[in-house]
Nucleic acid binder design. Sequence first.
RNA 1: GCCCGGGUGGCGGAAUGGCAUACGCGGGGGACUUAAAAUCCCUUGACCGCAAGGUCGUGCGGGUUCGACUCCCGCCCCGGGCACCA
Length: 762
Amino acid sequence: MAEYDPQAIEQKWQARWNADRAFEADADPSKPKYYVLEMLPYPSGTLHMGHMRNYTIGDVIARYRRMQGFNVIHPMGWDAFGLPAENAAIQRGIHPRDWTNTNIESFKRVCHRFGFSYDWRREISTCEPEYYRWNQWFFLRMLERGIAYRKRSRVNWCSKCMTVLANEQVVDGCCWRHEDTPVEPKENEQWFLRITQYADELLETLDQLEDGWPERVLTMQRNWIGKSRGTRVQFSVEGISGKAIEVFTTRVDTIFGASALILAPEHPLLSALVAGVKNQSEIEENIQKLRRRLTRAADIATAEKEGFFAGRYAVNPFNGEKIPIWVGNFVLMEYGTGAVMCVPAHDERDFEFATKYDLAIPIVVQPGEGKELTPQTLTAAFTEYGRSVNSGPYTGLSSEQAIAKMSADAEAGGFGKGEIIFRLKDWGISRQRYWGTPIPVLYCEKCGMVPVPDKDLPVVLPRMTKFTGMGQSPLASVPEFVNVKCPKCGGQARRETDTMDTFIDSSWYFYRYADAHNDKAAFDPALVRYWLPVDQYIGGIVHAILHLLYTRFFCKVMRDLGLVNHNEPVKRLFTQGLVLKGGTAMSKSKGNVVGAEEMAEKFGCDTGRLYTLFAAPPEKDLEWSEQAIEGCSRFLHRVHRLVSRHADALKAAPAGTGIGQSLDSATPKEKALLRKAHQVLRRVTNDYESRWHFNSATALLMELVNEIHAQEPLEQGARPDVVKQVFDLLTLMLAPMVPHLAEELWEMLGHSDHTLAHAAWP
RNA sequence: GCCCGGGUGGCGGAAUGGCAUACGCGGGGGACUUAAAAUCCCUUGACCGCAAGGUCGUGCGGGUUCGACUCCCGCCCCGGGCACCA
């Protein structure tokens, strides 16, 4: 009896799948399609079990859907541009392209080694001109529509990455790659994509994803977009004509309770306001002090409220009342108008501020329901809706009514209007680094900024050889790249030397899989219409905002370009848990990785796959345990032994009894075994179908094996055709999770007609 | 502070109102073996008991129900997200 030899079996079946082109799928409108996608990896270092868990889950789904008769597209590619490659180049003197390609080769080898059912014809690598020329093409289309634009602004600079970061790449005031490095504000001229133009739609269509996306991802995106409905109101400044201060408020109904205006220290009107007031120099000094203290975004949230009177008064347009203008450290220049009205009785922050600086606290909203607020009983701000009091003509209205009426009146009176604002900012995409897509514009002495004509795409990234990581845009030091003729006037021009954020690359890559080698267009819309949107996307929660927001934005832009006809790129999203070792996520920098290849060497990849599925439900974090793997290995050996021991008898079984046929003549014992097998089938199907609890699916299969083992049905004289049916079911159920072993068992059971790759799910 | 998850043996975890702890790991005992590995069998929540058996037991306190890990109310703890967003 042959022992289970995973290495041999795995090689054998991988060769067979290759020869059969078992996982290649082409668009075929007569078949229902299913798109299974795993987030494409950044090829750095070694592929570890964290990656493998992601791909194993995807592979199980792809194989299960294939068995169900779907035309399954299951592609893989490489997020090949990015900083670590460039940093490796600086540290080791290797070119980023060579470093990246070496890593891609090894990642690919391991993917093959694990038997993932990818259609490799669709492979892409984002650092190849064949791919990134379409980044440039998209950029030019956005430029034409005003979605891409250039402006000077305050941006986030990471001193370790030596580049500007997008807002989405800043976590708790620090760089997302360097959690201990606060980003520094920096004035910079750079390119932005006007994602805010889609803010409302990005928020609205999240509702369509309720059934398919994790609640927390939807919440995170909603928070990030941060829609607020409110009113913009202008306060004139006493003694200065023509210089109104605008505030944004969601509670215009409380404006009769405003006891001050508070401006952000960076407010552009401040210097004009302060000019000529008593104590001018002292106030200016205080402003400088506040500004300096606010350089670290991380500190702002925790800092104590501070402020001071700026020397002038504003006029409340609703009642003509004079209120002092203050400067406060808690007012954010980046949000709203950079100025707020201070209504202490009905806003917690204002209450705190007013208490500290002894400002008036007039009550203008009463809760009703028999409760009455008085200055004596008000120990905290009352921030809920109620009924307006002491609010002139609005007294007696509910808060909702007052907001509506006061917004309308402000607009009629020309001193304000209802407005919706978002927290979301435009996407800054310029990076002062080398290893990325060149931005396809140039600057002509005569014509100014000129887009590179489509016919001149791609703008190929030159092969630089010296990397220092110092200073600005490495490409600026390559004269052959920088100096060009202007395509408009033929005069002297300079190329843009910043490169694109690599999140552009990953924003549309899964559309390219549908038509990976098209050299006339990013993709053929007909193919995309067949394959997209993605039916099931699987990846880490880290991309809950970053990648998943950007890709939704790209989808909407592509729709408006007439390239796609859907509104959301991904129907269902699954975020798998981390693979931990010693309590922290496996990562090269922490030095706690378990390499996928060594895993496959030691136990075989089927065991590795099974372990990541069995050790925990897929959404939970999983602590790596070598002992638990041995349990999985034992189980697979046990199954192999069980089948091979009975293979000869079962092969000879009469072919009469197929799965699902009734067995009137079976003995009670035979029926009990069959019943068990079908119970397991029902529950395992449910696990594959919707619950994705592969750990309990595996447990059920173990139970079935234990049951067969305990009963020894053949030895006890059970009908071979009945036993065969049970073994067939077991094998089919194992197939998505441990495909190599399942194929081997299938063959041992005498099925020589076809591989399991496309066998029908029972 | 607000919003999501979660809390079950020594450990990973199972149980979609119906035998709590499936399955696996680890532990204990045994068979086979000269021996070991592998394999196979038995056992393994806590407490009381020689035993048959009994009592307790899913973070804590209440409630609904014939019946609650599961539903409701109030807390505690852990993880994650958001947060001077006006």
